[in-house]
Design a protein around this nucleic acid. Sequence first.
DNA 1: GGTGATTTTGCAGAGCGTGCATTTTTGCAT
DNA 2: ATGCAAAAATGCACGCTCTGCAAAATCACC
Lengths: 223, 223
Amino acid sequence: MHDMTGKDSAGGGLRERKKRATRAALAEAAVRLAAEHGADHVTVEAISAAAGVSVRTFFNYFDSRDDAFVVVDADVGVRVRRALLDAPADLTPLEALREALAAELAEAERQYELWSLHAEVLRAAPHLLVRSLGAQMADEAGLAEVIAERITPGARESGTTQSPGGEGRAIALYPRLLAAVAGTAVRVSVQHWCDRQDEDVPFADVFREVFALLAAGLPAPAR
Amino acid sequence: MHDMTGKDSAGGGLRERKKRATRAALAEAAVRLAAEHGADHVTVEAISAAAGVSVRTFFNYFDSRDDAFVVVDADVGVRVRRALLDAPADLTPLEALREALAAELAEAERQYELWSLHAEVLRAAPHLLVRSLGAQMADEAGLAEVIAERITPGARESGTTQSPGGEGRAIALYPRLLAAVAGTAVRVSVQHWCDRQDEDVPFADVFREVFALLAAGLPAPAR
DNA sequence: GGTGATTTTGCAGAGCGTGCATTTTTGCAT
DNA sequence: ATGCAAAAATGCACGCTCTGCAAAATCACC
């Protein structure tokens, strides 16, 4: 059912596969070195050496040294968008988004070891945490478009030319807000879950509680 | 003996005033130069020269070159927190937060010219926009603490030692989520308002619509 | 004016990031 | 297989960013 030639994990040519492997090797080396020696004591030279490539090649894959610590998976956004479009039509936008993200996060939880190291590195380096949040937000615009498409199928708005009614503004604000809030929800869930790692609450529970709070309009909790 | 030299705008000593002036001069020079020549064609040397200080002094005020474009006002977080604590007790947490932020944003709208340049610079440099959002979120932890304090006054939780009931977890998750969502709300409001600058909708209208959507639980908009 | 604390500054050095030309690897057709 | 063109990796040079450190300038207070 799936096309094998897409940008998904099973790439076609040897070239694409090798590029993917090199990128993954660099990212993993960066995270492991940072977890051991501290993020800002890890030079590009060390990362490149650990991955078996030259320093110059590192910069062919990442725009900056910090990006190696931040970027986890480039096409996670693509998968979420596709899942959102394929979601049952009777779900509310918030519900559909919740399900799409929950599926993706369950997938990410599988590579627990590397993901945990990642969290550890970001916790020790607030500077990088900030960048990580920014990366998470990079896909936000694309996500907002898909949400808008889901709400009003086919009615793609083009630039400023638009019906003068207040409705256009409303449906343009809503998808952006929903996309942004969803990203925030993921982040808060992860943070909260990491802080309470000793109690072993499943991540999915935290995640669903966050969405329940959002769906309820963030009411004041019972005293 | 009384230290009039708080961190508020009316500092006492000549020293503090001069530091504040230097910092402001550097930030303003950075923004103006970036608006003219593009953010990444502005060197620290140029910024320092425009502000009349040495390059080394620049780094005494900002941790990185990009921070000069990003940091607007250091103690805006302090004012929001104080406003939140002083808010009427009959407001819901979300309402209290909305009012505190609205007041602060109305204040910021006063220095429109510099703020507008700022927005222009960030629009042209997505790299910096990311940092700006991160900076906005830096206060999030502090904000969450104040929200928790407002909800359950005096009941400061200390570490992991805590009543085993599920209540503790709920009131720890909620403030974080609320603080994070509030930051997101501000960001989305600003972005949306900037995109529709030609229609002159007041910023306050966008802002209140965002909070209305949040309070309603982000329902699917009417078709 | 003298004194101590704070700030500014210059300097040296390590690391980051980019452009360019060269070499190596890969995909494909012969 | 072998040659060829596209893509990727590499080395090198260069400018910019950022950090200690110590000396000089400035400020607050007596």
